[in-house]
């Protein structure tokens, strides 16, 4: 088979997997939130509420697609697609298992991590443009917040990556995971790991950094005016981004598909380990949402610039010095 057919098939399968994961992580989130707040969560549609995502999808598709009179029609319609496109295109380079022939990834890009940063840095356009094009106050405020927040936290995030890159000596995601065969980078790069986890929550605009869509202040933030499937696209993008940062955290800091605690002789496929690690991060996100209150906006910016950024820089400098004197 020619290469492009294989890539097409892989992409189709991956798309299906990611969308299904989105649907059920949404259900899982509602269930987990329910349990943490001592209530059952969705349990009416199908056994244990398992058909809830399908019901939600049907509702979103059948809803009227409103465009406010003051909105800019072209940009207003374009924005959700920018969000969705950037959210999905990251999966073109994420490897899900060890593979010499590239079975578990669509593309093995040498500049993997940088490509990832490039794509995620485009993601903010969907939110900014969507909020601007809605032509009303709350979305504009939400999108201005989003832009400032995402630019600020992206710096800390990039810096936390560089420590890992120095240790691994490569920017390819495959290479980074292979470099963790002995020690997961969460041990030598613990500060980097903490910075990454915090900035990743801020990048995906989740609690406690969800000022972009703070219900109590901004109605629904940048997507206030969106309804029906267009709102659905933003919603999918948010969850897919959550999944993406969980994947990156597993690849960069928790050894990707490497087995933990020397359990290599169990012969569990690497993909299973990877899924378990990603699932752990997804649960962590839900846990945060059930536990933490929202930041105040000025505190959020101060925390990003005055604490996380210097911390990440310090971590980078120390890592660089140690590697320069002791080798990898």
């Amino acid at each position: 088979m020619p290469d492009w057919i294989i890539i097409l098939i892989k992409s189709a399968i991956l798309l299906l997997v990611v969308v299904t994961t989105f649907a059920y992580s949404m259900l899982a989130e509602r269930k987990v939130l329910g349990w943490m707040q001592l209530r059952p969560g969705p349990n009416r549609v199908g056994p244990w509420g398992l058909m809830q995502p399908a019901a939600d999808a049907a509702k979103l598709i059948l809803k009227e697609d409103l465009t406010p009179r003051t909105a800019d029609p072209l940009i207003y319609r374009l924005a959700p697609f920018i969000s969705l496109l950037t959210a999905f295109s990251v999966y073109a380079i994420i490897p899900f298992g060890a593979s010499s022939a590239g079975t578990w990834a669509i593309g093995n890009v040498n500049a993997g991590i940088l490509f990832l940063l490039a794509i995620t840095s485009i993601g903010v356009y969907g939110i900014t443009l969507g909020g601007w094009a809605s032509g009303s106050k709350y979305p504009l405020l939400g999108s201005v917040r989003a832009t400032a927040q995402m630019i600020s936290y992206e710096l800390g995030m990039s810096l936390s990556f560089i420590g890992v890159l120095i240790l691994a000596g490569t920017t390819s995601l495959d290479g980074i995971v292979n470099a963790q065969a002995k020690w997961w980078f969460v041990v030598p790069q613990f500060i980097g790991f903490i910075v990454y986890i915090i900035t990743a929550v801020a990048e995906t605009n989740r609690v406690p950094f969800d000022l972009v869509e703070a219900e109590t202040e901004l109605v629904a933030g940048f997507h206030t005016e969106y309804s029906g499937l267009r709102f659905g696209l933003f919603f999918i993008a948010e969850y897919v981004n959550m999944l993406t940062v969980s994947c990156i955290a597993s690849l960069l800091f928790l050894g990707g598909w490497n087995a933990p605690f020397g359990l290599d002789n169990l012969h569990v496929p690497g993909v299973i380990w990877f899924i378990i690690k990603v699932g752990f991060f997804m649960f962590f996100y839900m846990w945060l949402r059930a536990t933490l209150p929202r930041f105040r906006y000025d505190r959020l910016m101060a925390f990003g610039w005055k604490f996380l950024l210097p911390l990440a820089t310090l971590n980078l400098v120390v890592t660089a010095i140690i590697v320069a004197y002791m080798g990898h």
Binding site: A111, L114, L117, A118, S121, I122, V124, T147, I151
Partner: peptide, 16 residues
């Protein structure tokens, strides 16, 4: 990649 990160991701978003 750098073109995307620097120009699209940083400079242009400030314009916007």
């Amino acid at each position: 990649v750098i073109q995307m990160i620097v120009y699209s991701g940083a400079i242009l978003i400030l314009f916007l």
